[in-house]
Design a binder for these strands. Structure first.
Length: 250
DNA sequence: CTGGGGATGGGGCCC
DNA sequence: GGGGCCCCATCCCCA
């Protein structure tokens, strides 16, 4: 069903949206010799290039190295050694990535992302006091590029890709963390729109955008303003509405 | 200001 | 364990 969001806190500026400024920094890790000319249109996959993060790692030296020799670590002993360069002592930090209090129940997914949002929101100095100081019984894998930490190496590796951005578009040089993100981006070059609306035949390059579009065909607008009872088809529209001053409260 | 499309990021799940 | 995909989330831009 369309966008039944778990209503989470709305952080207006919490996450990096890769605009020009960021792009500029990104191009720093793109091999300068990427072929600009050839537009690999025929075969989408041909435009996919996942550079093995070499350029970026040139400044981050040790990252790929420690991943392999990691050995299972006892809960008390977090695998910080290899992965975490300078970070906090494993015990003390224990920002309890997944222990965001949820009625005492460990909630891994949304709370972690919420915690991540929180962490990216607060300065490292500030965040600790607000976090429950729970000593996690699970190992903590710290990202050395940001304050985030994960309970599995796989999750950390996945996260690290968002720093290394190994997938580079051969057409424009923009870099992405995952191949499928790059594929979606490549559609913006090729114009491919594999997702079409069954109601109006409008096509979209992204399934999420089709899903959002389907909302426009829906009679029911599910996002309602608490103050004026206006309803909106998207949560973002509701947020814009409230931000524009309808709801003086908050 | 609103509505909607486009683009993108990230976590989780499944294979 | 990794890749691919799904879904959620959010921002930007334009009409």
């Amino acid at each position: 069903m369309p966008r039944s969001f778990l209503v989470k806190k709305y952080f207006s500026s919490k996450k990096p949206y890769y605009r020009e400024s960021h792009l500029e920094s990104q191009t720093a890790f793109v091999p300068e010799s990427f072929p600009r000319a050839a537009l690999p249109m025929q075969n989408n996959s041909s435009a996919l290039t996942c550079y093995p993060t070499i350029p970026f790692f040139s400044s981050m030296d040790s990252l790929p190295v420690p991943l392999s020799p990691i050995t299972p670590v006892s809960p008390a002993l977090s695998p910080l050694g290899p992965l975490d360069l300078s970070s906090s002592p494993s015990g003390s930090s224990s920002s309890s990535s997944e222990e965001e209090e949820d009625g005492g129940r460990t909630k891994s997914y949304t709370s972690l992302s919420a915690l991540s949002h929180h962490q990216t929101h607060c300065s490292p100095q500030q965040q600790t006091p607000s976090l429950p100081t729970v000593v996690s019984t699970r190992p903590a894998f710290h990202c050395k590029h940001c304050p985030k930490e994960y309970t599995s190496l796989g999750a950390l590796k996945m996260h690290i890709r968002s720093h290394t951005l190994p997938c580079v578009c051969l057409t424009c040089g923009k870099a992405f963390s995952r191949p499928w993100l790059l594929r979606g981006h490549i559609r913006t070059h090729t114009g491919e729109r594999p997702f079409s609306c069954q109601h109006c035949n409008r096509a979209f390059a992204d399934r999420s955008n089709l899903r959002a579009h389907l909302q426009t065909h829906s009679e029911v607008k599910k996002y309602q303003c608490g103050s004026c009872s206006r309803t909106f088809s998207r949560m973002s529209l509701l947020h814009k509405h409230t931000a524009s001053g309808c709801c003086p409260a908050s």
